[in-house]
Design a binder for these strands. Sequence first.
DNA 1: GGCGACTGTTGACTTGAGTCAAAGGAGCAA
DNA 2: TTGCTCCTTTGACTCAAGTCAACAGTCGCC
Lengths: 252, 252
Amino acid sequence: MEKKLASTPISGKLLSGGSLAAACSTCSLRELCVPGGIPVSELEKLDALVAMRRRVKRGDTLFNVGDEFRALYAVRSGFFKTRITSSDGRDQITGFQVPGELLGFEGVATEQHGVDAIALEDSEVCILPYGELERIARDFQPLQHQLHRVMSREIMREHNVMLLLGTMKAEERVAAFLLNLSERYRHLGYSSNEFILRMTRQEIGSYLGLKLETVSRAFSKFQEQGVIEAQGKKIRLLDIEQLRKLVSSHKG
Amino acid sequence: MEKKLASTPISGKLLSGGSLAAACSTCSLRELCVPGGIPVSELEKLDALVAMRRRVKRGDTLFNVGDEFRALYAVRSGFFKTRITSSDGRDQITGFQVPGELLGFEGVATEQHGVDAIALEDSEVCILPYGELERIARDFQPLQHQLHRVMSREIMREHNVMLLLGTMKAEERVAAFLLNLSERYRHLGYSSNEFILRMTRQEIGSYLGLKLETVSRAFSKFQEQGVIEAQGKKIRLLDIEQLRKLVSSHKG
DNA sequence: GGCGACTGTTGACTTGAGTCAAAGGAGCAA
DNA sequence: TTGCTCCTTTGACTCAAGTCAACAGTCGCC
Protein backbone atom coordinates (compact mmCIF):
# COMPACT_ATOMS: atom_id res chain seq x y z
CA MET A 1 0.00 0.00 0.00
CA GLU A 2 2.68 2.50 0.94
CA LYS A 3 6.40 2.70 0.44
CA LYS A 4 8.43 0.32 2.53
CA LEU A 5 10.43 2.63 4.78
CA ALA A 6 12.19 4.78 2.28
CA SER A 7 15.59 5.71 3.59
CA THR A 8 16.67 6.50 0.07
CA PRO A 9 15.00 9.52 -1.47
CA ILE A 10 12.36 8.30 -3.83
CA SER A 11 11.52 10.36 -6.86
CA GLY A 12 9.57 13.45 -6.03
CA LYS A 13 9.02 12.65 -2.38
CA LEU A 14 12.04 14.05 -0.62
CA LEU A 15 13.35 17.53 -1.07
CA SER A 16 16.70 18.63 0.18
CA GLY A 17 16.38 21.81 2.15
CA GLY A 18 19.59 23.23 0.76
CA SER A 19 18.24 24.40 -2.51
CA LEU A 20 15.13 25.89 -0.99
CA ALA A 21 14.93 29.01 1.13
CA ALA A 22 15.66 26.53 3.95
CA ALA A 23 14.88 25.87 7.47
CA CYS A 24 13.59 27.16 10.77
CA SER A 25 15.34 30.50 10.93
CA THR A 26 13.34 31.83 8.00
CA CYS A 27 10.17 29.77 8.42
CA SER A 28 6.99 31.71 8.93
CA LEU A 29 5.74 29.05 11.32
CA ARG A 30 8.75 29.21 13.61
CA GLU A 31 6.91 30.65 16.59
CA LEU A 32 4.34 27.85 16.53
CA CYS A 33 6.63 24.96 15.85
CA VAL A 34 9.76 23.40 17.31
CA PRO A 35 11.71 26.68 17.33
CA GLY A 36 9.06 28.36 19.51
CA GLY A 37 10.71 30.33 22.28
CA ILE A 38 14.22 29.87 20.94
CA PRO A 39 16.03 33.13 20.11
CA VAL A 40 16.14 33.71 16.36
CA SER A 41 19.88 34.32 16.60
CA GLU A 42 20.36 30.73 17.68
CA LEU A 43 18.09 29.08 15.18
CA GLU A 44 20.89 28.16 12.84
CA LYS A 45 21.51 25.28 15.25
CA LEU A 46 18.21 23.82 14.14
CA ASP A 47 18.63 24.48 10.46
CA ALA A 48 21.05 21.61 10.02
CA LEU A 49 18.58 19.28 11.66
CA VAL A 50 15.61 19.89 9.40
CA ALA A 51 17.47 19.72 6.14
CA MET A 52 14.96 17.32 4.67
CA ARG A 53 11.37 17.81 3.72
CA ARG A 54 8.80 15.48 2.32
CA ARG A 55 5.62 15.89 0.35
CA VAL A 56 2.62 13.72 1.04
CA LYS A 57 -0.29 13.64 -1.34
CA ARG A 58 -3.88 13.72 -0.19
CA GLY A 59 -4.88 10.26 0.96
CA ASP A 60 -1.30 9.02 1.32
CA THR A 61 0.22 8.09 4.63
CA LEU A 62 3.24 9.77 6.16
CA PHE A 63 3.79 6.70 8.33
CA ASN A 64 1.82 3.67 9.46
CA VAL A 65 1.39 1.74 12.67
CA GLY A 66 4.37 -0.54 13.05
CA ASP A 67 6.74 1.48 10.86
CA GLU A 68 10.14 1.97 12.40
CA PHE A 69 10.29 5.27 14.24
CA ARG A 70 13.15 7.39 12.98
CA ALA A 71 11.93 10.96 12.95
CA LEU A 72 9.36 13.42 14.10
CA TYR A 73 7.55 15.42 11.45
CA ALA A 74 6.52 19.04 11.54
CA VAL A 75 3.62 19.95 9.30
CA ARG A 76 4.73 22.74 6.99
CA SER A 77 1.63 22.95 4.91
CA GLY A 78 -1.51 20.87 4.54
CA PHE A 79 -3.57 18.89 6.96
CA PHE A 80 -3.22 15.45 8.59
CA LYS A 81 -5.18 13.03 10.68
CA THR A 82 -3.73 10.40 13.00
CA ARG A 83 -5.58 7.17 13.55
CA ILE A 84 -5.19 4.33 16.01
CA THR A 85 -6.50 0.86 15.23
CA SER A 86 -7.04 -1.83 17.83
CA SER A 87 -6.43 -5.52 17.37
CA ASP A 88 -10.16 -6.18 17.24
CA GLY A 89 -10.75 -3.80 14.38
CA ARG A 90 -11.95 -0.65 16.09
CA ASP A 91 -10.48 2.58 15.00
CA GLN A 92 -10.43 6.08 16.28
CA ILE A 93 -9.01 9.30 14.98
CA THR A 94 -6.74 10.64 17.70
CA GLY A 95 -6.09 14.05 16.23
CA PHE A 96 -5.96 16.43 13.31
CA GLN A 97 -2.73 18.32 12.66
CA VAL A 98 -2.36 21.71 11.01
CA PRO A 99 0.82 23.54 10.00
CA GLY A 100 3.26 24.10 12.84
CA GLU A 101 2.15 20.97 14.67
CA LEU A 102 4.25 17.87 15.21
CA LEU A 103 3.60 14.25 14.41
CA GLY A 104 5.16 11.07 15.67
CA PHE A 105 5.76 11.41 19.43
CA GLU A 106 3.85 8.23 20.08
CA GLY A 107 6.68 6.34 18.38
CA VAL A 108 9.46 7.25 20.79
CA ALA A 109 8.48 4.74 23.46
CA THR A 110 8.59 1.61 21.34
CA GLU A 111 10.66 2.79 18.37
CA GLN A 112 7.70 1.94 16.20
CA HIS A 113 4.94 4.26 15.18
CA GLY A 114 1.73 3.72 17.12
CA VAL A 115 -0.69 5.48 14.79
CA ASP A 116 -1.21 5.98 11.09
CA ALA A 117 -0.66 9.53 9.87
CA ILE A 118 -2.67 10.32 6.77
CA ALA A 119 -2.69 13.51 4.71
CA LEU A 120 -6.17 14.99 4.21
CA GLU A 121 -4.85 17.33 1.54
CA ASP A 122 -1.60 17.63 -0.36
CA SER A 123 0.89 18.43 2.37
CA GLU A 124 4.50 19.02 3.13
CA VAL A 125 6.39 18.13 6.31
CA CYS A 126 9.83 18.87 7.71
CA ILE A 127 11.68 15.73 8.79
CA LEU A 128 13.36 15.88 12.18
CA PRO A 129 15.59 12.82 12.55
CA TYR A 130 15.07 11.77 16.11
CA GLY A 131 18.58 10.73 17.06
CA GLU A 132 19.95 14.03 15.87
CA LEU A 133 17.22 15.91 17.64
CA GLU A 134 18.15 14.28 20.94
CA ARG A 135 21.83 14.94 20.30
CA ILE A 136 21.30 18.62 19.61
CA ALA A 137 18.94 18.94 22.55
CA ARG A 138 21.71 17.71 24.83
CA ASP A 139 23.98 20.56 23.82
CA PHE A 140 21.32 23.18 23.52
CA GLN A 141 19.08 23.62 26.50
CA PRO A 142 16.39 25.80 24.89
CA LEU A 143 15.71 23.08 22.35
CA GLN A 144 15.59 20.43 25.04
CA HIS A 145 13.08 22.44 26.99
CA GLN A 146 10.95 23.26 23.99
CA LEU A 147 10.84 19.60 23.01
CA HIS A 148 9.55 18.72 26.46
CA ARG A 149 7.03 21.53 26.33
CA VAL A 150 5.65 20.28 23.04
CA MET A 151 5.28 16.73 24.33
CA SER A 152 3.65 18.00 27.48
CA ARG A 153 1.25 20.09 25.44
CA GLU A 154 0.25 16.97 23.54
CA ILE A 155 -0.49 15.24 26.84
CA MET A 156 -2.66 18.16 27.93
CA ARG A 157 -4.45 18.18 24.61
CA GLU A 158 -5.29 14.54 25.05
CA HIS A 159 -6.57 15.16 28.57
CA ASN A 160 -8.99 17.61 27.07
CA VAL A 161 -10.12 15.13 24.45
CA MET A 162 -10.72 12.63 27.24
CA LEU A 163 -12.85 15.20 29.02
CA LEU A 164 -14.81 15.77 25.83
CA LEU A 165 -15.31 12.06 25.15
CA GLY A 166 -16.08 11.25 28.75
CA THR A 167 -18.47 14.03 29.69
CA MET A 168 -19.97 15.86 26.72
CA LYS A 169 -23.16 15.28 24.79
CA ALA A 170 -23.11 15.05 21.02
CA GLU A 171 -23.90 18.69 20.26
CA GLU A 172 -21.49 19.91 22.90
CA ARG A 173 -18.73 17.86 21.30
CA VAL A 174 -19.42 19.20 17.85
CA ALA A 175 -19.50 22.79 19.12
CA ALA A 176 -16.22 22.25 20.99
CA PHE A 177 -14.68 20.77 17.87
CA LEU A 178 -15.62 23.76 15.74
CA LEU A 179 -14.31 26.21 18.32
CA ASN A 180 -11.06 24.34 18.65
CA LEU A 181 -10.51 24.30 14.91
CA SER A 182 -11.42 27.95 14.68
CA GLU A 183 -8.93 28.83 17.38
CA ARG A 184 -6.14 26.95 15.67
CA TYR A 185 -6.81 28.67 12.36
CA ARG A 186 -6.82 32.04 14.10
CA HIS A 187 -3.49 31.15 15.65
CA LEU A 188 -2.10 30.41 12.20
CA GLY A 189 -3.31 33.74 10.95
CA TYR A 190 -6.16 32.31 8.89
CA SER A 191 -9.77 33.30 9.14
CA SER A 192 -11.21 31.89 12.32
CA ASN A 193 -14.86 32.20 11.41
CA GLU A 194 -14.85 30.88 7.89
CA PHE A 195 -12.99 27.80 6.75
CA ILE A 196 -13.12 24.62 4.73
CA LEU A 197 -13.28 21.41 6.67
CA ARG A 198 -10.60 19.08 5.46
CA MET A 199 -12.25 15.98 6.89
CA THR A 200 -15.55 14.18 6.30
CA ARG A 201 -18.45 13.95 8.75
CA GLN A 202 -17.41 10.38 9.37
CA GLU A 203 -13.89 11.49 10.36
CA ILE A 204 -15.23 14.20 12.64
CA GLY A 205 -17.47 11.57 14.18
CA SER A 206 -14.61 9.16 14.67
CA TYR A 207 -12.61 11.83 16.47
CA LEU A 208 -15.57 12.83 18.64
CA GLY A 209 -16.84 9.34 19.39
CA LEU A 210 -20.04 9.89 17.36
CA LYS A 211 -21.64 8.49 14.24
CA LEU A 212 -21.55 10.56 11.11
CA GLU A 213 -25.34 11.02 11.13
CA THR A 214 -25.13 12.53 14.58
CA VAL A 215 -22.49 15.00 13.44
CA SER A 216 -24.58 15.90 10.44
CA ARG A 217 -27.65 16.48 12.60
CA ALA A 218 -25.68 18.71 14.96
CA PHE A 219 -24.52 20.84 12.04
CA SER A 220 -28.07 21.10 10.76
CA LYS A 221 -29.38 22.10 14.15
CA PHE A 222 -26.72 24.76 14.67
CA GLN A 223 -27.58 26.10 11.25
CA GLU A 224 -31.29 26.28 12.08
CA GLN A 225 -30.36 28.17 15.22
CA GLY A 226 -28.35 30.62 13.18
CA VAL A 227 -25.12 29.81 14.99
CA ILE A 228 -23.24 28.53 11.97
CA GLU A 229 -23.66 28.31 8.24
CA ALA A 230 -22.65 24.98 6.80
CA GLN A 231 -22.66 23.99 3.15
CA GLY A 232 -20.95 20.66 2.96
CA LYS A 233 -17.36 21.31 3.97
CA LYS A 234 -17.64 25.08 3.89
CA ILE A 235 -18.25 26.38 7.39
CA ARG A 236 -18.94 29.86 8.64
CA LEU A 237 -19.24 30.55 12.35
CA LEU A 238 -21.87 33.22 12.81
CA ASP A 239 -22.10 33.43 16.59
CA ILE A 240 -19.02 32.31 18.44
CA GLU A 241 -20.41 33.35 21.81
CA GLN A 242 -23.46 31.17 21.34
CA LEU A 243 -21.26 28.32 20.20
CA ARG A 244 -19.33 28.63 23.46
CA LYS A 245 -22.58 28.40 25.37
CA LEU A 246 -23.51 25.28 23.43
CA VAL A 247 -20.34 23.62 24.70
CA SER A 248 -21.40 24.08 28.29
CA SER A 249 -25.10 23.58 27.85
CA HIS A 250 -25.12 20.52 30.09
CA LYS A 251 -26.47 22.57 32.97
CA GLY A 252 -28.95 25.28 32.12
CA MET B 1 1.42 -6.59 51.86
CA GLU B 2 4.00 -3.86 51.29
CA LYS B 3 6.73 -2.40 53.45
CA LYS B 4 5.58 0.34 55.79
CA LEU B 5 8.17 2.96 54.83
CA ALA B 6 10.41 2.76 57.86
CA SER B 7 12.70 5.43 59.18
CA THR B 8 12.49 8.98 60.30
CA PRO B 9 9.47 11.02 59.31
CA ILE B 10 10.92 14.50 59.18
CA SER B 11 8.23 17.07 59.87
CA GLY B 12 5.76 14.46 58.76
CA LYS B 13 5.87 15.25 55.06
CA LEU B 14 9.38 15.32 53.68
CA LEU B 15 11.95 12.62 54.11
CA SER B 16 15.57 13.08 53.21
CA GLY B 17 16.84 10.19 51.17
CA GLY B 18 20.26 10.29 52.76
CA SER B 19 19.42 8.47 55.91
CA LEU B 20 17.41 5.83 54.11
CA ALA B 21 18.79 3.00 52.06
CA ALA B 22 18.39 5.65 49.40
CA ALA B 23 17.39 6.07 45.91
CA CYS B 24 17.06 4.46 42.51
CA SER B 25 20.06 2.17 42.58
CA THR B 26 18.55 0.06 45.33
CA CYS B 27 14.85 0.61 44.61
CA SER B 28 12.85 -2.48 43.85
CA LEU B 29 10.82 -0.54 41.31
CA ARG B 30 13.81 0.63 39.31
CA GLU B 31 13.05 -1.37 36.20
CA LEU B 32 9.55 0.07 35.97
CA CYS B 33 10.33 3.66 36.81
CA VAL B 34 12.63 6.43 35.61
CA PRO B 35 15.76 4.26 35.83
CA GLY B 36 14.30 1.69 33.45
CA GLY B 37 16.86 0.63 30.91
CA ILE B 38 19.72 2.52 32.54
CA PRO B 39 22.65 0.31 33.58
CA VAL B 40 22.65 -0.26 37.33
CA SER B 41 26.29 0.75 37.45
CA GLU B 42 25.32 4.25 36.38
CA LEU B 43 22.34 4.74 38.60
CA GLU B 44 24.26 6.69 41.19
CA LYS B 45 23.84 9.61 38.79
CA LEU B 46 20.14 9.51 39.57
CA ASP B 47 20.44 9.02 43.27
CA ALA B 48 21.41 12.63 43.89
CA LEU B 49 18.33 13.73 41.99
CA VAL B 50 15.70 11.88 43.95
CA ALA B 51 17.00 12.77 47.38
CA MET B 52 13.59 13.85 48.58
CA ARG B 53 10.48 11.85 49.19
CA ARG B 54 7.04 12.85 50.29
CA ARG B 55 4.15 11.13 51.96
CA VAL B 56 0.60 11.83 50.94
CA LYS B 57 -2.29 10.62 53.04
CA ARG B 58 -5.37 9.06 51.55
CA GLY B 59 -7.62 11.81 50.25
CA ASP B 60 -4.88 14.45 50.22
CA THR B 61 -3.60 16.02 47.04
CA LEU B 62 -0.03 15.80 45.83
CA PHE B 63 -0.64 18.85 43.68
CA ASN B 64 -3.58 20.78 42.31
CA VAL B 65 -4.49 22.42 39.02
CA GLY B 66 -2.73 25.77 38.88
CA ASP B 67 0.05 24.87 41.31
CA GLU B 68 3.46 25.91 40.11
CA PHE B 69 5.17 23.02 38.35
CA ARG B 70 8.51 22.28 39.95
CA ALA B 71 8.93 18.54 39.91
CA LEU B 72 7.76 15.24 38.57
CA TYR B 73 6.74 12.61 41.09
CA ALA B 74 7.34 8.88 40.96
CA VAL B 75 4.90 6.78 42.95
CA ARG B 76 6.88 4.68 45.41
CA SER B 77 3.97 3.12 47.19
CA GLY B 78 0.24 3.69 47.23
CA PHE B 79 -2.25 4.68 44.57
CA PHE B 80 -3.23 7.97 42.91
CA LYS B 81 -5.82 9.38 40.60
CA THR B 82 -5.43 12.43 38.38
CA ARG B 83 -8.40 14.59 37.60
CA ILE B 84 -9.02 17.38 35.12
CA THR B 85 -11.74 19.96 35.71
CA SER B 86 -13.12 22.22 33.01
CA SER B 87 -14.17 25.82 33.46
CA ASP B 88 -17.83 24.85 33.23
CA GLY B 89 -17.62 22.37 36.07
CA ARG B 90 -17.22 19.06 34.31
CA ASP B 91 -14.63 16.73 35.61
CA GLN B 92 -12.98 13.61 34.41
CA ILE B 93 -10.46 11.25 35.89
CA THR B 94 -7.59 11.05 33.42
CA GLY B 95 -5.70 8.21 35.02
CA PHE B 96 -4.86 6.03 37.98
CA GLN B 97 -1.21 5.66 38.98
CA VAL B 98 0.40 2.70 40.71
CA PRO B 99 3.96 2.36 42.06
CA GLY B 100 6.66 2.96 39.47
CA GLU B 101 4.50 5.35 37.46
CA LEU B 102 5.14 9.07 37.06
CA LEU B 103 2.95 12.06 37.74
CA GLY B 104 3.14 15.64 36.57
CA PHE B 105 4.16 15.65 32.89
CA GLU B 106 1.16 17.74 31.99
CA GLY B 107 2.76 20.62 33.93
CA VAL B 108 5.88 21.02 31.79
CA ALA B 109 4.17 22.94 29.01
CA THR B 110 2.74 25.78 31.07
CA GLU B 111 4.84 25.51 34.23
CA GLN B 112 1.61 24.98 36.11
CA HIS B 113 0.01 21.69 36.90
CA GLY B 114 -2.92 20.88 34.66
CA VAL B 115 -4.59 18.22 36.79
CA ASP B 116 -5.20 17.47 40.45
CA ALA B 117 -3.31 14.44 41.76
CA ILE B 118 -5.07 12.80 44.69
CA ALA B 119 -3.93 9.86 46.79
CA LEU B 120 -6.49 7.05 46.98
CA GLU B 121 -4.57 5.43 49.81
CA ASP B 122 -1.69 6.48 52.02
CA SER B 123 1.15 6.86 49.55
CA GLU B 124 4.73 7.87 49.14
CA VAL B 125 6.35 9.54 46.14
CA CYS B 126 9.89 10.36 45.08
CA ILE B 127 10.34 13.99 44.12
CA LEU B 128 12.22 14.65 40.89
CA PRO B 129 12.98 18.37 40.68
CA TYR B 130 12.40 19.17 37.08
CA GLY B 131 15.22 21.63 36.45
CA GLU B 132 17.73 19.20 37.81
CA LEU B 133 16.21 16.37 35.83
CA GLU B 134 16.68 18.31 32.61
CA ARG B 135 20.21 19.25 33.60
CA ILE B 136 21.23 15.68 34.32
CA ALA B 137 19.49 14.46 31.17
CA ARG B 138 21.71 16.80 29.14
CA ASP B 139 24.86 15.12 30.41
CA PHE B 140 23.52 11.63 30.51
CA GLN B 141 22.00 10.36 27.34
CA PRO B 142 20.33 7.22 28.73
CA LEU B 143 18.33 9.33 31.15
CA GLN B 144 17.34 11.75 28.41
CA HIS B 145 16.12 8.92 26.26
CA GLN B 146 14.26 7.21 29.08
CA LEU B 147 12.52 10.46 29.96
CA HIS B 148 11.31 10.79 26.39
CA ARG B 149 10.21 7.17 26.35
CA VAL B 150 8.14 7.65 29.46
CA MET B 151 6.42 10.75 28.08
CA SER B 152 5.79 8.97 24.81
CA ARG B 153 4.31 6.01 26.66
CA GLU B 154 1.91 8.38 28.40
CA ILE B 155 0.83 9.72 25.01
CA MET B 156 0.21 6.17 23.78
CA ARG B 157 -1.71 5.33 26.92
CA GLU B 158 -3.98 8.29 26.32
CA HIS B 159 -4.54 7.26 22.72
CA ASN B 160 -5.82 3.98 24.04
CA VAL B 161 -8.13 5.70 26.49
CA MET B 162 -9.46 7.78 23.61
CA LEU B 163 -10.13 4.58 21.70
CA LEU B 164 -11.95 3.16 24.69
CA LEU B 165 -14.04 6.30 25.24
CA GLY B 166 -14.74 6.79 21.57
CA THR B 167 -15.64 3.28 20.48
CA MET B 168 -16.49 0.93 23.33
CA LYS B 169 -19.80 0.07 24.93
CA ALA B 170 -20.19 0.20 28.68
CA GLU B 171 -19.43 -3.43 29.44
CA GLU B 172 -16.52 -3.48 27.06
CA ARG B 173 -15.04 -0.49 28.86
CA VAL B 174 -15.39 -2.06 32.27
CA ALA B 175 -13.84 -5.32 31.08
CA ALA B 176 -10.95 -3.40 29.50
CA PHE B 177 -10.47 -1.48 32.73
CA LEU B 178 -10.23 -4.62 34.82
CA LEU B 179 -7.80 -6.25 32.43
CA ASN B 180 -5.62 -3.16 32.36
CA LEU B 181 -5.48 -2.97 36.13
CA SER B 182 -4.79 -6.68 36.36
CA GLU B 183 -1.93 -6.37 33.91
CA ARG B 184 -0.36 -3.51 35.84
CA TYR B 185 -0.53 -5.43 39.10
CA ARG B 186 1.03 -8.44 37.44
CA HIS B 187 3.80 -6.21 36.18
CA LEU B 188 4.43 -5.03 39.72
CA GLY B 189 4.64 -8.60 40.94
CA TYR B 190 1.28 -8.53 42.71
CA SER B 191 -1.54 -10.94 42.11
CA SER B 192 -3.14 -10.21 38.79
CA ASN B 193 -6.38 -12.05 39.37
CA GLU B 194 -7.26 -10.91 42.83
CA PHE B 195 -6.99 -7.38 44.08
CA ILE B 196 -8.63 -4.59 46.00
CA LEU B 197 -9.96 -1.70 43.99
CA ARG B 198 -8.65 1.52 45.42
CA MET B 199 -11.31 3.65 43.76
CA THR B 200 -15.10 3.88 44.01
CA ARG B 201 -17.57 2.91 41.30
CA GLN B 202 -18.09 6.60 40.71
CA GLU B 203 -14.37 7.11 40.09
CA ILE B 204 -14.22 4.14 37.73
CA GLY B 205 -17.21 5.61 35.95
CA SER B 206 -15.60 9.01 35.68
CA TYR B 207 -12.51 7.47 34.13
CA LEU B 208 -14.55 5.36 31.71
CA GLY B 209 -17.11 7.99 30.77
CA LEU B 210 -19.94 6.11 32.49
CA LYS B 211 -22.28 6.65 35.42
CA LEU B 212 -21.61 4.74 38.60
CA GLU B 213 -24.83 2.72 38.23
CA THR B 214 -23.68 1.49 34.84
CA VAL B 215 -20.35 0.37 36.28
CA SER B 216 -22.14 -1.41 39.08
CA ARG B 217 -24.46 -3.18 36.66
CA ALA B 218 -21.54 -4.32 34.55
CA PHE B 219 -19.84 -5.81 37.61
CA SER B 220 -23.06 -7.57 38.56
CA LYS B 221 -23.51 -8.96 35.09
CA PHE B 222 -19.93 -10.24 34.88
CA GLN B 223 -20.45 -11.88 38.23
CA GLU B 224 -23.65 -13.60 37.06
CA GLN B 225 -21.72 -14.86 34.05
CA GLY B 226 -19.06 -16.27 36.33
CA VAL B 227 -16.33 -14.13 34.81
CA ILE B 228 -15.44 -12.24 37.96
CA GLU B 229 -16.27 -12.32 41.61
CA ALA B 230 -16.90 -8.88 43.08
CA GLN B 231 -17.66 -8.08 46.68
CA GLY B 232 -17.52 -4.34 46.96
CA LYS B 233 -13.92 -3.38 46.32
CA LYS B 234 -12.59 -6.92 46.44
CA ILE B 235 -12.26 -8.28 42.92
CA ARG B 236 -11.32 -11.70 41.70
CA LEU B 237 -10.94 -12.38 37.99
CA LEU B 238 -12.14 -15.91 37.34
CA ASP B 239 -11.93 -16.11 33.58
CA ILE B 240 -9.45 -13.75 31.98
CA GLU B 241 -9.96 -15.22 28.53
CA GLN B 242 -13.67 -14.55 28.68
CA LEU B 243 -12.99 -11.06 29.95
CA ARG B 244 -10.83 -10.44 26.90
CA LYS B 245 -13.67 -11.58 24.69
CA LEU B 246 -16.01 -9.18 26.46
CA VAL B 247 -13.73 -6.31 25.45
CA SER B 248 -14.16 -7.11 21.79
CA SER B 249 -17.75 -8.24 21.88
CA HIS B 250 -18.85 -5.43 19.56
CA LYS B 251 -18.89 -7.82 16.63
CA GLY B 252 -19.99 -11.39 17.32
C1' DG C 1 -19.20 -0.79 69.62
C1' DG C 2 -22.69 1.71 67.58
C1' DC C 3 -24.05 5.84 64.74
C1' DG C 4 -23.96 8.36 60.58
C1' DA C 5 -22.32 9.15 56.16
C1' DC C 6 -20.53 7.49 52.30
C1' DT C 7 -20.69 3.61 48.81
C1' DG C 8 -22.92 0.11 46.22
C1' DT C 9 -26.98 -2.48 44.22
C1' DT C 10 -31.17 -2.93 41.86
C1' DG C 11 -35.58 -1.61 39.62
C1' DA C 12 -38.56 1.27 36.65
C1' DC C 13 -38.66 4.66 33.46
C1' DT C 14 -36.76 8.15 30.01
C1' DT C 15 -33.99 9.74 26.46
C1' DG C 16 -30.08 10.69 23.45
C1' DA C 17 -27.59 8.68 20.11
C1' DG C 18 -27.19 4.62 17.09
C1' DT C 19 -29.18 2.00 13.20
C1' DC C 20 -31.26 1.39 8.90
C1' DA C 21 -32.89 3.25 4.82
C1' DA C 22 -33.68 6.34 1.01
C1' DA C 23 -32.57 10.05 -1.70
C1' DG C 24 -30.08 14.23 -3.08
C1' DG C 25 -25.50 16.57 -3.96
C1' DA C 26 -20.50 17.16 -4.90
C1' DG C 27 -16.50 15.99 -7.06
C1' DC C 28 -13.61 13.31 -10.03
C1' DA C 29 -12.44 10.48 -14.22
C1' DA C 30 -12.94 9.32 -18.72
C1' DT D 1 -20.36 16.41 -20.54
C1' DT D 2 -21.82 12.06 -18.52
C1' DG D 3 -21.60 8.79 -15.27
C1' DC D 4 -19.99 6.94 -11.03
C1' DT D 5 -18.61 7.00 -6.48
C1' DC D 6 -18.44 8.91 -2.27
C1' DC D 7 -20.39 12.19 0.96
C1' DT D 8 -24.26 14.33 3.27
C1' DT D 9 -28.87 14.96 4.85
C1' DT D 10 -33.15 13.53 6.80
C1' DG D 11 -36.72 10.44 8.65
C1' DA D 12 -38.47 6.53 11.40
C1' DC D 13 -37.43 3.32 14.67
C1' DT D 14 -34.57 0.96 18.41
C1' DC D 15 -31.91 0.32 22.30
C1' DA D 16 -28.05 1.28 25.52
C1' DA D 17 -27.08 4.09 29.04
C1' DG D 18 -28.67 7.83 31.94
C1' DT D 19 -31.90 9.30 35.61
C1' DC D 20 -34.43 8.89 39.70
C1' DA D 21 -35.44 6.45 43.66
C1' DA D 22 -35.29 3.16 47.38
C1' DC D 23 -32.72 0.41 50.13
C1' DA D 24 -28.69 -2.36 51.73
C1' DG D 25 -23.94 -2.67 53.05
C1' DT D 26 -19.51 -0.84 54.81
C1' DC D 27 -16.37 1.95 56.98
C1' DG D 28 -14.46 5.07 59.93
C1' DC D 29 -14.98 7.88 63.74
C1' DC D 30 -16.66 9.36 68.07
